[in-house]
């Protein structure tokens, strides 16, 4: 069984966001990028567990991103993935998630894949598009919001749990398939120093954007993509309006009045 996990190099959750001068995205200057603490990291962990528990042959990590995104690949290699593929885009490219899915699909099609794993959504654009779009482009079933999975190699069936509004569904479906993981069964492992050193020597294949675009031409469907028109940060919060009070009842009355008359949410 071959497992592919797709990750995205994203700004760290604690990064202070500033708008870029073109007004279309964040200014990457001084931003720390990572895959740590994201849905993608959970997907990588789950991919590795598939390998360890179910005897998957190899785990390959794939990303679409600028040169710095190699760091994300090395990180997942140091978690234990075997090989990496980097579809390298220019540093300032702002790609629509459907375009990313097409680039990934064009390359994944040429690689052995029984299970393609992605995180529920990237931590930056939060689109959650790539997983099920990959399913369509590769002609495979896709399962999203998955919280647990166990493959049965003999019947090529996955037993899964997935989040649905109001609860959880236990279901099964065939693979090869694409899985978007909401959360994994275990906390992602932290790479050890020996593994970090080993990861430096693991094979990492670069695919140019032009090459990936050529490969994507063979995919079904007409390529179409959205484009960011503008990026906005909310006006800085000035801090809360603090309720002055003597007794809890007074605090409650003042708060309810504000919520009713000023905020109009009650």
């Amino acid at each position: 069984m071959d497992v592919i996990v797709c990750v995205k190099h994203v700004p760290d959750a604690e990064t202070r966001l500033r708008a870029a001068s073109n007004g279309k995205w964040i200014d990457p200057d001084g931003v720390k990028f990572t895959v740590n603490n994201t849905y993608d990291e959970a997907a990588a962990e789950e991919a590795l567990r598939l390998k360890e528990k179910c005897g998957a042959k190899s785990v390959r990590v794939v990303t679409v991103g600028p040169p710095r995104a190699e760091e994300a690949l090395r990180y997942v290699l140091s978690m234990g993935a075997d090989e990496a593929t980097h579809i390298e885009t220019p540093a300032d490219a702002l790609l629509d998630p459907l375009t990313v899915a097409r680039l990934l699909a064009g390359v994944i099609k040429t690689l052995p894949h029984d299970i393609v794993m992605v995180g529920k959504q990237a931590a930056d654009d939060e689109a959650g598009v790539v997983g099920s779009a990959l399913g369509a482009l590769l002609g495979l079933p896709s399962y999203a919001f998955v919280t647990e999975l166990a493959p049965d190699a003999a019947t090529k069936t996955l037993k899964m749990h997935r989040y649905v509004e109001g609860g959880e569904e236990h279901f099964q479906g065939p693979f090869p398939a694409v899985i978007s993981l909401l959360k994994g069964a275990a906390d992602p492992r932290t790479p050890t120093l020996p593994n970090i050193l080993k990861a430096r020597k693991k094979p990492l294949t670069k695919v140019s954007l032009a090459d990936a675009q050529t490969r994507a031409q063979a995919l079904p469907g007409a390529p179409a993509s959205g484009a960011v028109r503008s990026f906005a940060l909310p006006p800085p919060k000035t801090g809360a309006k603090m309720i002055e009070y003597q007794t809890p009842d007074e605090a409650a009355e003042k708060l309810v009045k504000l919520l009713r008359e000023e905020a109009k949410v009650l």
Partner: peptide
């Protein structure tokens, strides 16, 4: 919803549409 967010990207990829969740 979980279903809506899973369905639309797949539909957009099938029919050559665009998607925003």
């Amino acid at each position: 919803t979980a279903m809506g967010r899973e369905l639309l990207p797949r539909l957009a990829a099938e029919v050559g549409g665009t998607v925003a969740p």
